[in-house]
Simulated scan of single mutants.
Amino acid sequence: MAFIADILLAAGALAAGFYCFILSRRLRKFTDLEHGIGGAIAVLSVQVDDLSKALKQAEQASTASSNSLEAKYLKADAVAKRLEILIASLHDLPEAPRPAPTIDPFFVREPATPEEAV
């Protein structure tokens, strides 16, 4: 009976060893930097760095655009207030005299009467 238990124990140890061997080969392929998940993680890490740089550049550009737009808005607001004052001051001016009707320099013949048309 002890002999059978020893054989089963040795078979179990061999099976566990074979399982560990297969598992180590799979893990080696899994963490390979060129073809496995390790390579994908390395590529994604580089892409995240590139995206964070692009995000910083976009943030700087948007800040600069915002500052420029705000300055232009303030300038336009000041000009609009000045135009309002100028338009309000035009209401105080007297009305300009209306120009005399112009005479047409071309001769226009009177339409013929029905008696002359016959």
Rank of each mutant, 00 (worst) to 15 (best):
Ser68Leu: 13
Lys56Gln: 12
Val79Thr: 14
Leu33Met: 14
Arg82Phe: 10
Ala61Gln: 10
His91Val: 08
Val48Phe: 12
Lys72Val: 08
Ser66Ile: 13
Ala58Trp: 09
Leu74Trp: 00
Ser24Lys: 01
Leu90Trp: 02
Pro97Phe: 12
Ala96Val: 08
Phe21Asp: 09
Ala88Gln: 06
Lys72Thr: 02
Arg82Cys: 06
Pro111Asn: 10
Pro97His: 03
Asp104Lys: 03
Leu86Met: 07
Leu83Asn: 02
Gly39Trp: 11
Glu95Cys: 07
Pro94Lys: 02
Thr63Ser: 13
Asp50Leu: 01
Val43Ser: 12
Gly38Thr: 00
Leu86Glu: 13
Ser24Ala: 15
Lys53Arg: 15
Glu84Val: 07
Val108Tyr: 14
Gly36Ala: 08
Ile37Gly: 10
Glu70Val: 01
Lys81Ile: 03
Ile103Pro: 07
Ser45Arg: 15
Pro114Lys: 15
Gln57Asp: 03
Thr63Phe: 02
Val48Arg: 09
Tyr73Val: 04
Ile87Thr: 13
Ala61Arg: 00
Pro97Gln: 10
Ser68Gln: 13
Ala88Met: 06
Glu110Met: 03
Lys56Met: 09
Leu83Met: 05
Pro99Tyr: 03
Leu55Pro: 03
Ala54His: 08
Ser62Phe: 04
Phe107Asn: 08
Lys81Ser: 09
Ala58Leu: 02
Leu27Met: 11
Leu55Asn: 08
Ile87Ser: 15
Ile22Asp: 13
Leu23Phe: 14
Ala100Asn: 10
Asp32Gln: 07
Gln57Ser: 11
Asn67Ala: 13
Arg25Thr: 02
Arg109Val: 00
Ser45Gly: 15
Ala58Asp: 00
Ala64Leu: 04
Arg109Tyr: 00
Gly39Asn: 00
Leu27Phe: 07
Glu95Ile: 08
Pro94His: 01
Ala96Thr: 14
Leu44Arg: 13
Asp77Pro: 01
Lys72Ile: 00
Thr113Gly: 15
Lys29Ser: 14
Ala112Lys: 11
Glu70Phe: 05
Lys29Phe: 01
Phe106Glu: 01
Pro94Asn: 04
Ala64Val: 09
Ala64Gly: 12
Lys81Phe: 03
Ile37Trp: 02
Ile87Val: 08
Glu70Ser: 00
Ala76Lys: 03
Lys56Ala: 14
Val48Ile: 07
Val48Asn: 04
Leu33Lys: 14
Ala42Lys: 04
Ile103Val: 15
Pro94Gly: 08
Leu90Met: 05
Ser24Trp: 10
Leu69Gln: 13
Ile103Ala: 07
Arg25Trp: 04
Pro111Phe: 10
Val46Ile: 12
Glu34Phe: 04
Ser45Tyr: 08
Arg98Asp: 02
Lys56Phe: 01
Ala54Thr: 07
Pro99Gly: 07
Pro101Asn: 05
